[in-house]
Design a protein around this nucleic acid. Structure first.
Lengths: 200, 200
DNA sequence: GGCCGTATACTCGTGGGCGAGTAAGGGGTG
DNA sequence: CACCCCTTACTCGCCCACGAGTATACGGCC
């Protein structure tokens, strides 16, 4: 296949996107990306920033442009995105948007081992999840509405998307819970018996 | 905070769940888990299996029970789950089910840098995603229906959940696409102009 | 009966990710 | 004017994940 991405960490995507707007030194990227709230969109670990920038440089996607020092502060290296970097950013974006990838949410892993617990505990856990989910939803909805006035929709797509997905999850959980407590879940007794005998 | 999980890799969760059913040696776990299709539920890399089992052993969650050889084959070490292992499995399951965690689907990352592309290309990419999504949905629905007859619902929850989420994603994408092509997306012209001037 | 492909069963090296550590300037306060 | 803490700006080193490699045996086919 088309050889794997030179730098796979999504933090690299954020860095490229930032450098397209303006050249920066790493620490500035961090504040810039935090201000933009990009760390809400991707699993960003700031400890990886310098490694990632170095890797981008190694592969010619960014390049050092200036390396001055101000006062006695540690030296700062300002980076600029290269043509190859722009191309990589565009290509990567295309891939991320056009190609749905198999995702592995942790909840799915949890569901797949849920049988090990009893049905009553399972229901209780789902209730807890649903509550947390609904609290979060209220917050997200409020935050989105607040931003709608100030920010163009283009920059709210991620939040819109996440909100929609969370709503779907809450809906599914609510239905499952109803089946479980309403008794319309099949083989409930078998599950309970199996667990009470094989369990702890 | 309650100190991080001893072994964090989700493959460890699958291994624990397998060993609760019966003691096994690592290679057998792999075939067992593949047969159960657990690699659909979690991002499992088989290259990590031996590392993960060793780590579980190191932390006392599983223990070696027998280490014989059959014929001239390489030595096989059979592992059994310990009491601590059972407890960890139950606790981990509870956490995964009851606590919604902030997830970072790659599509979200893609959306967050979509502005870098023009609106026309964006629409085209979304169209491609939607098509792929719908193809996948048809398959998943068929597979689920086929299993409904043979497998208790308890073991189909992960698939049900995933199906629901994918449907929600397809729905959102479809609506966004309609807004984009129907002209009801705000600031479309600004976006286009910005891109045509600042772009390549 | 010899050959080959596939299943069995691991081993190992590298490379990246990430947390924790470091160190100097600035500015506010008593 | 001395102290201290927060911000700026990185550096380092461990550890784990994972891909690629290895080695034997069994079964089937010609």
């Amino acid at each position: 296949m088309a050889e794997r991405r030179k730098v796979g960490n999504l933090l690299a995507l954020a860095v490229l996107a930032a450098l397209v707007e303006k050249s920066m030194h790493p620490y500035e990227m961090a504040t810039f990306l935090k201000a933009r709230g990009k760390d809400e969109d991707m699993p960003i670990k700031w400890g990886s920033l310098y490694t990632v920038v170095a890797n981008l440089a190694k592969h010619g996607l960014v390049e050092a442009v200036e390396s001055g020092r101000q006062g006695g502060r540690p030296e700062r290296t300002v980076y600029r995105v290269t043509e190859a970097g722009r191309a990589e950013l565009a290509d990567w974006t295309r891939e991320l948007v056009a190609t749905p990838e198999r995702e592995y949410p942790r909840f799915k892993a949890g569901l797949s081992v849920l049988g090990g617990l009893g049905p009553d505990e399972a229901a209780e856990l789902l209730r807890r999840r649903l509550e947390a989910l609904e609290r979060g939803l209220a917050e997200q909805r409020a935050a989105l509405d607040a931003q709608r006035a100030a920010v163009p929709r283009l920059f709210l797509l991620e939040s819109e998307y996440e909100l929609t997905m969370r709503e779907a999850e809450a809906g599914w959980t609510r239905r499952l819970l109803a089946d479980l407590t309403g008794g319309s879940f099949p083989d409930l007794d078998e599950w309970r018996r199996f667990h009470e005998s094989g369990g702890v």
